[in-house]
Design a protein around this nucleic acid. Structure first.
Lengths: 139, 139
DNA sequence: AATGTAAACGCAACAATGTTGCAAAATTGG
DNA sequence: CCAATTTTGCAACATTGTTGCGTTTACATT
């Protein structure tokens, strides 16, 4: 785990610091997506808010994470798959928000469908957000 | 126009005030979606920020508007079609965000596709956000 | 048209969230 | 181990969202 995290950072030309380690660890533990405030809370008093903002910004730019729009004014972030490095993302999967537990997860195995737009509109990116009850909560 | 706005309010059991009139007018002028700050700016000095928050909240509850998730921490709101009144929405259409002009519009004529989820997941609502270049900007 | 009542508004104060500049500390490559 | 660069923490600030309360406005009834 420790090694996996350090590798992830080095592979993306980022220096290894305790803040970055901690945040990646939180993502790996969680599995799903985290908002800025999730991270702030779970990281405890150990890191400054500003550091969290800057770290997420850096991870976004390097392509370690991608962000997920939400309807509640709190962007979520989730780890990218390995093939998303170097700034360009390959995260055309569906995001699922559980209304019971509140978790957001990436459904890597569900591809976003092609959307046929009216004449004159050119699609560059498609985001699909599904809300409902997740596997853990419906069981 | 004046009459249309007043009708819209009355049909939703809302008293007609200048603030509500103004905000509905902005939506009708704009055609597309507006964020809270859009409204604040365009309404000028005439209304308190709190009034805008409360008015949007009321419109949401009554079903005059629906909100559109975004990836930039600024929910957009758009007028619902007539058949969305009374709290339950029928806005299963695609939302388009233009990367050139920044506008967000509802593509009423494009339905959201059915999404096949893995076992154990139950979908309640599906949001589709397409970004790209809109008709006006590609012309 | 006047009036009473309930709803909506504006203001103020506050809480939460996001941004910027700069000096101190940590990381990395040599 | 050392120097150069990057990252961090702090402080100050800007923006965004929330709450309570007294005043004003809208509306139904007279």
């Amino acid at each position: 785990m420790e090694k996996k995290i350090d590798d992830l950072l080095k592979r993306n030309q980022l220096s290894v610091t305790s803040g970055r380690r901690k945040i990646l660890e939180l993502f790996l533990q969680q599995g799903g997506a985290l908002s800025h405030s999730d991270i702030e809370k779970r990281a405890g008093e150990k890191f400054d808010r500003v550091t969290v903002y800057r770290t997420l910004q850096t991870f976004l730019e390097k392509g370690l994470i991608h962000n997920i729009p939400t309807a509640d004014n709190s962007i979520r972030y989730a780890l990218c798959k390995d093939d998303c490095g170097g700034g360009h993302h390959q995260d055309d999967h569906v995001h699922f928000i559980c209304t019971a537990c509140g978790n957001t997860v990436c459904l890597e195995e569900v591809n976003v469908p092609a959307i046929k737009l009216p004449r004159g509109f050119a699609a560059e990116q498609v985001e699909v957000l599904v809300s409902g009850v997740c596997r853990s909560c419906s069981a």
